[in-house]
Design a protein around this nucleic acid. Sequence first.
DNA 1: CGCATGCTTGACTTTGATCAATAGCGGTGG
DNA 2: CCACCGCTATTGATCAAAGTCAAGCATGCG
Lengths: 252, 252
Amino acid sequence: MTVNQNIVKTQDANCPHDKRVSCGNCRLNTICLPISLHIEDIDRLNGIIQRGKPLQKGDYLYRANDHFHSVYAIRSGAVKALTLSDNGEEQVTGFYLPGEVVGMDGIADNRYTNSVIALETASVCEIPFNRMEELSLQIPNLQRHFFQLMSREITQDQQIITLLSKSSAEERIAALLLSISSRNSRRQLSANAFRLPMSRTDIGNYLGLTIETVSRIFTRLQKQNVISVDKKEVLITDMELLRNIANGDGHC
Amino acid sequence: MTVNQNIVKTQDANCPHDKRVSCGNCRLNTICLPISLHIEDIDRLNGIIQRGKPLQKGDYLYRANDHFHSVYAIRSGAVKALTLSDNGEEQVTGFYLPGEVVGMDGIADNRYTNSVIALETASVCEIPFNRMEELSLQIPNLQRHFFQLMSREITQDQQIITLLSKSSAEERIAALLLSISSRNSRRQLSANAFRLPMSRTDIGNYLGLTIETVSRIFTRLQKQNVISVDKKEVLITDMELLRNIANGDGHC
DNA sequence: CGCATGCTTGACTTTGATCAATAGCGGTGG
DNA sequence: CCACCGCTATTGATCAAAGTCAAGCATGCG
């Protein structure tokens, strides 16, 4: 028994896609769960959560126009969300990393407006929305938590709006790098060295730039000794300067 | 008595800023309330709603960083929401017309991230959020309604992201005109003739364009006989063409 | 009336898009 | 093993859409 538990523990620690996890022992629960939830309430929430087999790179988690029934917390890996615009081209609306939640766009009309695609092998926790709603009626903090989650999505989308509306190509790239950096450090990973899970094309699409511009900015930032890029590996060598660039003080 | 009631009724019909309104008799309740709410539940919701004196043009409904305690349904007039970006300039994040709800950005961190300012004389219904939450625990449809409201805000913000990321200046203006048009017709107003409540500066700020570009696009659309503009009065003369322009088929 | 404000229009500049060529890399099969 | 392909990324040359700068006009208000 003790031996078995040790094995499980070891696998938990080593494999980020391990299915045998509950919210109670999940390393990400400070990110995706409200801090003020009681242990027994966490167990009740855990009881409704479904964990399937991991998505492979390129797999859809769901597609735009699918019937909505769940939101999903990313457990490992990374995904992108994208909408089809009226004239038919894709718009990447967000990248989601472990601990973050996708799918809330589907609540309004009971259909997802985004498609979500794995950028690399990724596992997710499925939260059936109807059951979460029922549970929320009994656990006020859970209700509050979901209101907050959705509100945060709103404020983040509005930050993207500001970025697209007001910032130069260089500022947009800098802001994206800083966003990924801070989200990594929230998960106890390095804020300075990381691997971008998405392609240049995805970055360009997300930031409203062409792939050529993205590439040029990366090399320019590298020449300015702000970052060092090797394919998808990024090393931020001058965090302070990167912040200045993101805030538009790059050239003044 | 009968006479008095008639007077009240007359004022209701004539003055959109009249305070003596309840959700039950509000002409906008199909827009801002869930259809599936029972009459007695509407009364309970109405019981927590506060209606103050109207805002005058330029008045703040609340300011970014204010402590969050309420969301607001616009009853009459129009308001704009704006954030301050990191480098200090304003970004208009939305225009809100009667029946629409502002303030949900404040839930995440108990502080508003936007400021909201009246574009013209406007009256609002204040919905204290804590009391709405309590009521939601007893009225599942109300909980669902707020999830949907917030989800709709998310999908709308994502549409703006797509607009800013992918569309030309002309497409952005066309899309804004169509948005206002359809929101007007939802309130039984003309889809073709209306008054823009916001300035050219606000439009440019919202759409990521300079005021000069906004002005030029308006005159260009007018020369193409798509719209007719006189100051803030807009007449859409070719709805079909305007839709084509918004979808990027304007020149192909 | 004179001044401030908001809008329009014109001339010129700049940023990022477009077009095009090339390089690197992983997989596949002869 | 290496020749070939497909895909992604980089780099350069040119172009165009929207920004900037500047001037002028209309409106409204003390």
